[in-house]
């Protein structure tokens, strides 16, 4: 399998854009051609991107990565479709299940609810950046040790949610885990293992450096 960082990105699909619309009807366009719309049209070049592909830079796992995506592309789609970083999964695609969880600016986020263009300028940690080569991060190790995975499709998101949670709650209890990891859903039913994994990882990470 090879990855193509720059898939073919032809001209805007619809040939229609909000800016173009305003340019065409905004001046002398009867009732439309007054007030607000003219002001918006004048201000537009500074703020509006797209709808065609735009170059962006994401700070991914400590490295700047350049890519070209339409503004409507979500962060999870940018990672998966444009960068071949497929640890984050697209499942509900509506900010419910947590399978696409990444850590952005130190906070866990659902990557399906963040636009890639809006993720610029922030440090984004994905599961691919957790550990080098075949080494396992203490959270990943704990998920393996406690069989907190079956099909495994929710697992990378769960691992990232757990990592983000433990960074902020290093002394968590099992009750804390039940609340703190409530934003991730598993269909195979691995929650008992996840509870144990989170507590094991908390112990291991306390022994390591703070950013372990």
């Amino acid at each position: 399998m090879s990855s193509r960082k720059d898939p073919e990105t032809p001209a805007p699909a619809s040939g229609f854009s909000r800016r173009g619309f305003i340019a065409r009807v905004g001046i002398g366009g009867g009732a439309l051609g007054t007030g607000l719309l003219e002001n918006e049209a004048a201000a537009a070049p500074a703020n509006v991107a797209g709808p065609g592909p735009v170059p962006i830079t994401l700070n991914l796992n400590g490295k700047p990565v350049k890519l070209t995506v339409e503004p409507r592309v979500t962060l999870v789609d940018a990672l998966r479709n444009y960068l071949d970083l497929t640890g984050a999964k697209r499942v509900c695609d509506r900010g419910t299940c947590g399978a696409c969880t990444v850590i952005m600016g130190g906070k866990t986020v659902y990557a399906c609810t963040v636009l890639a263009i809006d993720a610029q300028g922030k440090n984004i940690e994905t599961i691919e950046g957790l550990a080098a080569g075949t080494a396992l991060h203490p959270v990943s190790q704990a998920f393996w040790d406690n069989d907190a995975q079956q099909c495994g499709y929710c697992t990378p998101g769960f691992v990232m949610a757990c990592k983000g949670f433990l960074d902020e709650h290093p002394n968590c209890t099992e009750e804390d885990v039940k609340h703190g990891l409530g934003g991730n859903l598993c269909r195979c039913g691995t929650y008992i293992g996840v509870r144990k994994a989170a507590l094991q990882a908390a112990k291991t990470m306390k022994g390591a450096t703070k950013n372990g």
Binding site: V139, S140, W144, D147, A148, Q149, G152
Partner: peptide, 20 residues
């Protein structure tokens, strides 16, 4: 422990929907 555990919990496991 399950043999494919490290692949899954590290995010390296490639599901068909991950391939390109």
């Amino acid at each position: 422990k399950r043999l494919d555990g490290p692949m899954k919990s590290s995010g390296r496991a490639k599901y068909s929907s991950d391939l390109k």
